[in-house]
Amino acid sequence: MTQQLANPPAKASPTYTGARNEDDKALLRAAVELTRDLGEAKASIYWPDMLGSALVGYAALAGAIVSDTLWVTLLLGVIATLALYRALLFIHELTHIHRDALPGFRTAWNILVGIPMLMPSFMYEDGHTIHHSRKRYGTPDDPEYLPLALMKPWSLPVFVLVALLAPIGLVIRYGILAPLGLLIPPLRRLNWERFSTLAINPDFRRRPPADGDRKRFILLETGAAIWGIVVIASVFWIGWRPLVVALAVFSAVGILNQLRTLVAHLWENDGEPMSVTAQYLDTVNVPPPGFIAALWAPVGLRYHALHHLLPSLPYHSLGEAHRRLAAHELAQATYNRAHYRGMAPLVGKIASSTMGRRQSSVQQKGAASAEATP
């Protein structure tokens, strides 16, 4: 059973009853009032963090490629995975910070991380804003939501393992399908609708980009397509080893991100709209004192539930915002209900939900069969 970090307050919110369509007004009011001074995205934090993560990641990846010693290759591969994973997850920040907040940061990230990892920022833009919509979170329109806790038990390992193939899929999407799409318009339309969004909802179809974004998206896709072609062609002049090692590291990044995604929510919504508070409680914080979460949920994502309360708050401010809300007399009763101790108990909780539904379904079928027996 998942252990929650609950510290019952002396005085709970007098208005919130826990209904799915009702908000805890004390929590929402406190979230806004206590964090007014934390909204500035600080260039002195963003730039060194992103650049340092990318530099360490690429240096370790290069070392893993050229090393002739297995344990050195594996060690450098782990370092490359964690560093590049952190660098990659700045894509989440790009979706939320104002475009004028950090001049040049979005372009630099795409050149240094997004395009080389075949994950340009447009793959997260637009779609992620739907995920934060009050009316569309957890509904069939949400590209980033599946009711995993309500699905079959086998869906969880499939959900995670499919990430192993993501790097190969991205090479095909940009290095093959994008160039062919210039010659075959239906293929280009399919590529955009189905393979241009970091979505886990298989029914999601992306709409054409807004006029203001079209040129920028085309430039990013062109850059990623050129790099994809270079990656495919590289095997003919430098051999298979660099590509195989890089794909192995990027697959590890994909698995790590998919595990984080698996425990980012409780995935218990059945498709109906939810209040902001209900969305918060369907989402997960893994706050300190544990430090491992900072590796598998970096760039502020260990405070994912808090992020759903305050999506525009920069990642470096989430820790302080968490401390203030966790100590607030009227907000903490609801706020502390979204805190969990780590990935393992969360995976266990979601798996238990799927197994419980399976057992209930078997029992219902058995009862129906018994009633039908003369």
Rank of each mutant, 00 (worst) to 15 (best):
D141V: 04
P311R: 05
H132N: 02
L306I: 08
A199T: 07
S121T: 06
I79F: 13
R188K: 15
V286M: 15
N21Y: 01
D213G: 01
I115N: 00
L5D: 06
A224D: 08
L219C: 08
L259N: 02
L89V: 10
T222C: 05
W240H: 05
R36A: 12
M119P: 00
L61C: 13
R29W: 07
F291P: 07
R214K: 10
L243W: 07
N336C: 13
R173Q: 14
P140H: 06
L198M: 12
A59G: 12
A233I: 11
S13R: 01
A26W: 09
P287H: 08
D213E: 11
T95R: 08
V230S: 04
V276K: 15
V299D: 07
L94Q: 14
E193C: 07
L38I: 03
I232Q: 10
Y315Q: 08
L187H: 06
A87Q: 12
Y16K: 06
E221I: 01
L310H: 02
S234P: 03
P288M: 06
A178Q: 10
D270Y: 04
H92D: 12
R324K: 12
A368V: 05
N285Q: 11
I130G: 00
L313N: 05
N7E: 03
L38H: 03
D126I: 04
G348S: 07
R302E: 09
R205E: 03
L165C: 09
A108V: 15
A12H: 03
